[in-house]
Computed example of a mutant assay.
Amino acid sequence: MVTLADVARMSGTSRSTASRALKDDPRISAKTSERVQLVAKALGYRPNLAARTLATGRSGIYGLIVPSRLMGDVYGAQLVSAVTDAVSAHDGGVMLWLSHDRPSRAIRDTINHGIVDGLIVSILVQDHPWVVELLDSGLPCVLIGRPGGLEEASYATADNIASSWALMRHLREEGYRRLAAIRGPLGNTDADERHSVFVEAMGGVGELDANLVAVGDFTYESGYAAATALLRHRPDGIVAGNDEMARGAMDAVRTAGLRIPEDVGVCGWDAVRRPNHGDMELTTVRQDVPAVGREAVSILLDLLKGEQGPIRRTLPTQLVVGRSTVRGTRSGEEMPT
């Protein structure tokens, strides 16, 4: 069986150069690309997905890596659907991988053997070494969310900063002073950005009461447990890093025999579905998850066309004011951030 290594050796190139030449990578000169493709044809080299790959230089398959946890909520379903629809509109297909921490060896082998043209990655910790390894591999890659410290990364994200400031201004206007936070996972850039605004709005790290900060994992259960612990320190409001944790916090407040928002206000972030819990309208930030997914595909296609990266796009959000934080009569407002 003829391998890529055989093509590289016979054409006098490296394996990576031969691989890129067979995909019509614009970084490879026309002369080298023609030589590699002539050698591949003469040797009868056939990569996987042979017919389409030989005709276009690409498989038309794009990888999507998401945390296993995301597939259990609306956010994950919306993201996968949006990416799949956007890729299908360009006659492509999506290979979906679920990952708890990092891709398995089988996934990494699939990526390294040229089966996918590029990757869209939505993970909990975006500066993980395997993400850096992906970015260094040369395979076009787009992250969902703004990665901290990865200057070379392309990404699509919602505007965490402006929307979080709008949320904190609303809480101050409603008279909240002793606010507690249930932040998302450490190292997750969405969680980090949202929490950084909370810390700054509360006067900075030196002014923050450590008893009023808890770490969750974006699930209802973590929100309930964190709020139960925070309520011992008598906050007048709880700022949750997403709506699932906010819903858990609301139930914890009610279980403690307290009223929302008279005793404790609760707000979230995401609004990927109707922003309420039971009969209570939740104050939250609405992000357009499908739009983020579509934008990630658009960026990946631009990279594959040869546009110089990194490409970074930030999408606007809306503050949705519900009864869960309004102590007067005002609720139901939607304000751009």
Rank of each mutant, 00 (worst) to 15 (best):
S104H: 06
T219F: 00
D25Q: 01
V205M: 13
L231M: 13
H113L: 14
I115Y: 12
T283N: 02
A180D: 05
M168Q: 04
D24R: 12
D91G: 10
D6N: 09
C267R: 02
R146D: 10
V132Q: 12
L134D: 08
R273F: 15
S11F: 09
Q308F: 05
S163A: 15
I115H: 15
L150D: 02
L304N: 00
G306P: 01
L208R: 14
S14N: 06
E333C: 05
D136C: 00
T283A: 06
P261R: 05
R232W: 08
R105K: 11
M245T: 08
H233D: 11
T255F: 08
A51C: 09
Q37P: 01
G145I: 10
R254F: 02
Q318L: 12
Q287S: 06
L282H: 00
D263W: 02
V7Q: 04
Y45C: 11
D91Y: 11
S137D: 00
V199K: 01
V253S: 06
A51V: 14
D190L: 09
V94Q: 00
D127S: 15
P235K: 01
P47G: 10
E221I: 05
Y155W: 15
Q308R: 14
T56C: 02
L208K: 09
G248T: 01
H195N: 04
L212K: 07
A166K: 06
P310C: 04
R313P: 03
I111S: 12
L139V: 02
L304F: 09
R69S: 15
D270F: 08
E262S: 14
D159G: 03
E333I: 09
I61V: 15
G118M: 02
N211P: 05
L54M: 12
A181S: 09
A82V: 14
D117E: 04
M1R: 03
L208F: 10
V87H: 02
P47A: 11
S16I: 05
R58V: 00
D127I: 03
A156T: 02
R327C: 00
R46N: 09
R27C: 05
D109C: 05
Y62V: 15
M95F: 14
D279M: 04
R177A: 15
V83M: 07
S68D: 11
G322K: 12
Q37I: 05
E193C: 04
E173Y: 09
V125E: 14
D91R: 14
E307I: 05
I61P: 06
M1Q: 12
I61E: 10
L319S: 09
Y62T: 07
T32I: 12
M71H: 06
R254S: 12
